[in-house]
Deep mutational scan, measured.
Amino acid sequence: MTSCHIAEEHIQKVAIFGGTHGNELTGVFLVKHWLENGAEIQRTGLEVKPFITNPRAVKKCTRYIDCDLNRIFDLENLGKKMSEDLPYEVRRAQEINHLFGPKDSEDSYDIIFDLHNTTSNMGCTLILEDSRNNFLIQMFHYIKTSLAPLPCYVYLIEHPSLKYATTRSIAKYPVGIEVGPQPQGVLRADILDQMRKMIKHALDFIHHFNEGKEFPPCAIEVYKIIEKVDYPRDENGEIAAIIHPNLQDQDWKPLHPGDPMFLTLDGKTIPLGGDCTVYPVFVNEAAYYEKKEAFAKTTKLTLNAKSIRCCLH
């Protein structure tokens, strides 16, 4: 018999989150649709729960009410004593943790798909938090293969000092899905179709896995975050240069030392320094102006996964 890495157990509980950011409308629209008619997301033997994560922000069509829901799922915020004085999103995070967690427990949901849009030209993107997770690498390989020839990129946010504390991190297997470009507060049919297909293929993978299909060893190309880059700023902290036209919409493309990065209003080009080629992502993302992030630098690498098969009882 072929030796293989056996994944822990079959997958039982899956959640699909929309509206973690209330103005990213593809996930909101799909989740609302699936709450009314969820036939397309159901798979035999699998509990799939669509869920609106930040209903107040969705109602106002804004990213958040008090603070970013997708950055506060750490033990400090989840452990705060519940009171009306807490920011709305912290209270909501505790409610979500109660419903789908608790985080880092045996009772937490197996998989959470968190649906997002970006204003950046990132196409279909899967966000991975753990480079050693054979199950998710296999799932992402399946999704990428199923979507081809449509490109699907994998963004690895594993980093020693950049801690995200994402909404989906309460699950055993957290999956971020990011599709763009799409303006905030807008629905685009092409973007919706791409996100819908990503979810379909992900659920198909889980179904095949649960039925005992063995997935042979595989490898995927990923883009691992190195650092986030702020806009150049003046002495008052105001933005002093904008994304250069040569960099705009060039997510995932190589940016070499000396290539144009920013452009000042008086026409001066600010190039990339250093001696390493990087791959920019979230270029000129609207939501990241407040976070002082013009783009993120990534490096390209390959992740390998062992063969996996479900432990059938």
Results as ranks from 00 to 15, higher is better:
167 T>V: 09
253 K>P: 00
256 H>R: 13
94 Q>K: 11
295 F>H: 00
186 V>H: 03
218 C>E: 02
5 H>R: 15
46 L>E: 01
232 P>L: 05
80 K>M: 08
221 E>I: 02
27 G>V: 02
255 L>H: 04
85 D>M: 14
16 I>S: 02
26 T>L: 03
140 F>C: 06
99 L>Q: 09
299 T>Y: 10
163 K>P: 14
18 G>T: 01
299 T>S: 10
191 I>D: 02
148 A>P: 03
223 Y>R: 00
294 A>P: 02
214 E>W: 11
247 L>K: 02
260 P>Y: 04
6 I>N: 12
105 S>T: 06
32 K>I: 03
133 N>E: 05
41 I>F: 02
4 C>L: 12
298 T>K: 00
220 I>M: 13
66 D>I: 02
141 H>W: 04
274 G>P: 05
10 H>E: 11
16 I>T: 01
55 P>E: 13
151 P>G: 05
190 D>N: 06
246 N>M: 10
227 E>S: 07
244 H>A: 13
280 P>A: 04
97 N>T: 13
83 S>E: 11
210 N>R: 13
294 A>L: 01
226 I>F: 11
211 E>Q: 13
141 H>R: 06
297 K>G: 04
208 H>W: 14
163 K>H: 07
53 T>P: 06
266 D>C: 08
19 G>Y: 03
3 S>M: 10
211 E>R: 07
133 N>Q: 05
196 R>H: 03
73 F>M: 09
206 I>L: 15
84 E>G: 08
235 E>P: 12
12 Q>I: 07
54 N>G: 05
76 E>V: 08
215 F>T: 01
123 G>P: 00
176 G>N: 08
115 L>N: 03
271 P>R: 15
140 F>T: 05
115 L>Q: 02
240 A>F: 08
105 S>A: 08
276 C>H: 07
312 L>M: 07
39 A>Y: 08
276 C>P: 04
66 D>T: 12
221 E>F: 01
239 I>M: 09
282 F>R: 13
174 P>H: 09
184 Q>K: 11
12 Q>D: 10
130 D>G: 05
227 E>M: 04
41 I>H: 00
52 I>P: 01
241 A>H: 04
168 R>H: 10
236 N>R: 09
98 H>Y: 07
24 E>N: 06
259 D>F: 04
213 K>I: 11
59 K>P: 07
267 G>R: 08
128 L>F: 06
69 L>M: 13
55 P>R: 15
222 V>Q: 00
120 S>H: 01
174 P>K: 12
211 E>L: 10
198 M>T: 14
232 P>Q: 03
97 N>M: 11
271 P>V: 12
183 P>Y: 02
250 Q>S: 14
136 L>T: 05
274 G>H: 05
255 L>T: 05
302 T>I: 09
261 M>G: 03
27 G>D: 01
56 R>T: 11
15 A>Y: 02
90 V>R: 11
170 I>N: 06
3 S>E: 09
207 H>P: 02
257 P>W: 01
218 C>Y: 00
301 L>V: 14
128 L>K: 01
215 F>V: 04
99 L>T: 15
116 H>S: 10
115 L>M: 13
310 C>H: 12
145 T>A: 08
257 P>M: 04
155 Y>V: 11
281 V>R: 01
152 C>L: 12
23 N>K: 05
92 R>V: 12
305 A>C: 06
31 V>T: 07
147 L>K: 00
211 E>S: 12
177 I>V: 15
245 P>R: 04
165 A>C: 08
4 C>F: 10
58 V>Q: 11
21 H>T: 05
19 G>D: 00
83 S>A: 15
313 H>R: 14
137 I>T: 03
236 N>K: 11
149 P>N: 05
239 I>G: 02
229 V>M: 11
117 N>I: 02
179 V>R: 01
162 L>G: 08
118 T>A: 12
178 E>L: 12
263 L>A: 08
86 L>G: 14
273 G>L: 10
84 E>T: 15
213 K>N: 11
222 V>L: 03
161 S>Y: 12
20 T>H: 08
60 K>W: 11
301 L>D: 06
43 R>Q: 05
79 G>M: 10
311 C>N: 13
124 C>N: 10
15 A>W: 03
264 T>Q: 09
175 V>E: 01
14 V>N: 00
252 W>R: 12
220 I>L: 14
235 E>L: 11
226 I>P: 01
7 A>T: 12
132 R>H: 13
67 C>T: 11
48 V>M: 05
51 F>Q: 05
221 E>G: 04
223 Y>K: 00
173 Y>T: 15
212 G>D: 04
273 G>R: 14
225 I>F: 09
61 C>G: 14
240 A>Q: 14
18 G>N: 00
73 F>T: 13
151 P>R: 06
199 I>M: 14
277 T>H: 07
17 F>V: 11
38 G>M: 15
265 L>P: 11
55 P>K: 13
162 L>H: 12
146 S>A: 14
195 M>A: 10
267 G>L: 05
212 G>K: 05
222 V>Y: 03
113 F>D: 02
91 R>S: 14
45 G>T: 10
175 V>H: 02
83 S>Y: 10
144 K>C: 09
59 K>G: 13
237 G>L: 04
117 N>K: 00
118 T>S: 13
113 F>V: 11
276 C>F: 10
255 L>R: 05
241 A>I: 03
5 H>Y: 12
194 Q>R: 11
219 A>L: 15
99 L>I: 12
91 R>N: 15
107 D>V: 13
63 R>L: 05
25 L>D: 12
253 K>Y: 08
